[in-house]
Every structure is written in structure tokens, then in C-alpha cells.
């Protein structure tokens, strides 16, 4: 997950100081991605080092302000433009399945079953989340949830497929 690019996006909108970046991020993800302040500052340091952001100075309350550089803007556009490839083994369950087959794991069926149950629960919860997004009117986030649901649908189908083997 690219915290780095989300900070660039927030700074692209307007110059902000560290705490503002933290609240801005929470707003963006509907507070559903717990991000701690430390993580923000280490990321900012890295961005400054790479000349993607710079600091014009401190504000009245002595908080360090950040702005995005020309280089930072280029980086943001590059990132948005670049398609995302899917990597097979990043999905942990895929990897588990691979290893289970490798060691001839006896409870493979049960493993699948439990995974399916979890995913079904996720469906219930995602629908709940979707409902919340609906109520709060966050269309972008709702679309993300729909996407996740579609993924789950495909995953559950795949689980049924491997369970039959």
C-alpha cells in the first residue's frame, strides 16, 4: 500500500503540516485504515530526502509545513499512470494452498472450508460497509467496496473449484 503516494496526493491539493496530513489521510479512507503519526513523519522524511517534497518553513504555531516539488508532482503522475500488475503469490492463501499441496496436508479440505467461511463473513461485512458508504455518500469508497465484493465472489468460486479436486 502506497502511503507515500497518498501523502503526495494530499500535498498536491494544498501545503500541509504533519498532523494535517494524518487527518487528511483518515478522511480519505473514511478512517478505516489506521495510520499512526510516526508513520507519517518517517514517510515525510523519506520524501524530503528524495526531493519529492520540500519545506518552506514553520507556521505561526511552529509546525513544519510541507509542499510538493516539481519532482514530486512528476512522481505522483507517473504512479497514477502506471498500470498495476497482479502478482500471484502475494495472496497469502494462494501460497498456503501451494505449500499445503507440497506437504500433502491432511486437512486441506478443512482449510479451504474455513477460508470460505471467512470469506462469506467478509461478504456480510462488506455489504454492511457498502451500506455505510451508501449512507455517507462516499461514492468512490463504495465503488472500492463493490470491487472487493466482486473479488470475493471470484475467490469463493475458486475455493469451490479447488475443494472439488
Amino acid at each position: 500500500m502506497s502511503v507515500k503516494h497518498s501523502l503526495l496526493a494530499l500535498l498536491y491539493e494544498k501545503p500541509r503540516h504533519g498532523y494535517e496530513l494524518k487527518t487528511g489521510f483518515d478522511e480519505l479512507v473514511e478512517s478505516m485504515w489506521p495510520l499512526n503519526a510516526g508513520q507519517v513523519y518517517t514517510t515525510l522524511d523519506r520524501l524530503e530526502r528524495d526531493n519529492l517534497v520540500e519545506s518552506p518553513g514553520h507556521d505561526l504555531k511552529d509546525r513544519k509545513q510541507y509542499t510538493i516539488t516539481k519532482q514530486g508532482k512528476d512522481e505522483l503522475w507517473n504512479w497514477l499512470e502506471k498500470p498495476v500488475g497482479r502478482s500471484l503469490l502475494k495472496d497469502e492463501f494462494y501460497f498456503k494452498y501451494l505449500c499445503a499441496s507440497f506437504v500433502d496436508y491432511k486437512d486441506k479440505q478443512r482449510m479451504i472450508q474455513v477460508q470460505k467461511q471467512t470469506m462469506m463473513k467478509d461478504v456480510l461485512n462488506l455489504t454492511q460497509l457498502r451500506k455505510q458508504m451508501n449512507q455517507s455518500g462516499n461514492k468512490t469508497m463504495k465503488m472500492l467496496v463493490e470491487g472487493a465484493l466482486l473479488h470475493l465472489e471470484a475467490d469463493i468460486k475458486w475455493l469451490d473449484m479447488i475443494a472439488r479436486d
Binding site: 489506521p34 467461511q117 463473513k121 467478509d122 456480510l124 461485512n125 454492511q128
Partner: peptide, 15 residues
């Protein structure tokens, strides 16, 4: 499967 309030919170943090 059943949706319960506490596993919703757990779900969110994991998800």
C-alpha cells in the same frame, strides 16, 4: 456464517 458486531470491527481492521 453469521455477521456479528464484534467480528465486523475485527473485519474492518483486518480488511
Amino acid at each position: 456464517v453469521q455477521r456479528e458486531d464484534d467480528d465486523y470491527a475485527e473485519f474492518l481492521s483486518r480488511f
